[in-house]
Design a binder for these strands. Structure first.
Length: 292
DNA sequence: AGACTAACCTGAAAGC
DNA sequence: TGCTTTCAGGTTAGTC
């Protein structure tokens, strides 16, 4: 369940392991739909490249390469990026690349049969691993022109979108507002946990038809959403089912959630038991009294 | 176009 | 105890 905050925390922790390093070997598991770009092609086109930056849009990570290609990574449900196999941290810092945090070394992760991608670098430092038990994650290499085309399917990043956009997108939609928030082509980055949390904070019931949102509703909803997302990034994300940070530690936002996975427990604001319903094939949690 | 469904995958948890 | 079923979730292809 990595959503925007977990992906952002991952981006920040993994960037030092990737940026300004030259790829010298690419190891993968067998071809599968996990590899939108086949392993062979990946290897051919990644060897010798230097990563010049690591960006995020919604739940996607995009590694920019020195030849203009972009490596797109999606963590799906259970994807984890981590570094390991450091042979010389000192070498890295000595070459002026910035030092890797000590935590980045001892991750508690270890490569196994679910580790689908391994990158090694010319400095002999830590390798980068992409592990994904359920293989809902994605790896795709895009040419300079393909990247924007691929991202065009996504709406603006949830952290940078305005209430007007949400209001406009909600017009004429009979489906639940919860579904709207989860629609990555409307806004990118929101998943099940933060949709529920934002709706609670805004006092909006997840089942409300999107077209019934007023402008003020949209303002409150977006404000709540950003607050929840920012706070989660601050606390390292939610470690609810599978997610742990690249450095191996747990996030802490799960301790702050108000409704997600709290069915039958009292609402922290009014004491009414939290309810769970299914909307758009997703479990949704809300307070029947605080959310209308 | 929007709305709804099934499929992809695996491990944990619940059911028997 | 041990086998079987159910469930979770992000995305996409397919159908109406």
């Amino acid at each position: 369940m990595p959503e925007l905050p977990e992906v952002e925390v991952t981006r920040r922790q993994i960037a030092p392991l990737l940026v300004n390093r030259r790829i010298v070997s690419v190891a993968t598991t067998r071809p599968s739909y996990f590899f939108l770009t086949p392993p062979r092609t990946l290897r051919d086109r990644l060897l010798g490249r230097i990563v010049v930056g690591l960006d995020r849009h919604g739940k996607y990570l995009l590694a920019r390469l020195d030849d203009g290609q972009r490596l797109l990574l999606h963590l799906g449900m259970t994807g984890q990026l981590f570094g390991a196999g450091a042979t010389s941290v000192r070498l890295l810092s000595a070459t002026g690349r910035g030092s890797l945090s000590p935590e980045a070394q001892a991750t508690g992760f270890s490569p196994d049969g679910h580790t689908h991608l391994r990158l090694s670098f010319s400095d002999g430092g830590p390798q980068l691993f992409f592990r994904d038990t359920r293989k809902f994650g994605k790896v795709q290499l895009l040419g300079p022109d393909e990247a924007s085309e691929r991202l065009a399917r996504l709406g603006p990043d949830a952290l940078s979108v305005g209430a007007r956009h949400l209001y406009a997108s909600s017009r004429g939609r009979r489906a639940a507002v919860k579904t709207l928030l989860l629609d990555q082509s409307v806004l990118a980055g929101v998943g099940n946990i933060y949709a529920d949390e934002a709706l609670f904070l805004a006092g909006v019931r997840p089942s409300r038809p999107a077209r019934r949102l007023t402008r003020p509703d949209c303002v409150r909803l977006l404000r709540s959403l950003k607050r929840v997302l920012r706070r989660s990034i601050e606390t390292g994300g939610s470690s609810i089912s599978d997610y742990i940070r690249p450095d191996g530690s747990d996030g802490a936002y799960q301790d702050e959630r108000r409704v997600y996975d709290r069915a039958h427990q009292p609402c922290q604001r009014c004491g009414t038991p939290i309810r769970r319903v299914v909307i758009g094939q997703r479990s949704s949690h809300f307070c029947p009294r605080c959310q209308r």
